[in-house]
């Protein structure tokens, strides 16, 4: 079972604020799912299993040209911003 500190550490990495009750709940939930993953432990992977995902083609390339806001448009983007000052996205100071 994950410890309270482990769940707190994961939540901080995930940038999710949790109440104490939630920490207890996720200790239980996450531990039971992690136990479920144990099934993979016994699996022998010496038989050349690789890590590639779904085969997809190589990247497409395009001209390196600035397209401010593209076809979407500045106003429609800014309409969704929760906090705006002088036409800019407002963010809390980092320090």
């Amino acid at each position: 079972m994950l410890s309270t500190d482990e769940v707190k550490r994961i939540a901080l990495l995930a940038r999710i604020g949790l109440t104490d009750a939630e920490i207890e709940r996720y200790r239980k939930d996450l531990s039971s799912v992690l136990d479920f993953f144990r099934e993979l432990e016994a699996l022998d992977l010496s038989d050349g299993a690789d890590e590639e995902g779904v085969p997809v083609k190589e990247n497409d390339t395009r001209e390196d040209r600035a397209e401010p806001f593209g076809s979407v448009g500045r106003d429609d983007i800014m309409k969704n911003v929760p906090s705006v000052k002088d036409g800019y996205v407002k963010v809390r100071s980092v320090f």
Binding site: A11, A14, I16, R25, L30
Partner: peptide
């Protein structure tokens, strides 16, 4: 994120993290 996400989303984000 605490207010905006529901319990299943939080669970999966933390599991993946």
């Amino acid at each position: 994120r605490a207010y905006g996400f529901g319990p299943e989303v939080k669970r999966r984000v933390m599991l993946g993290t």
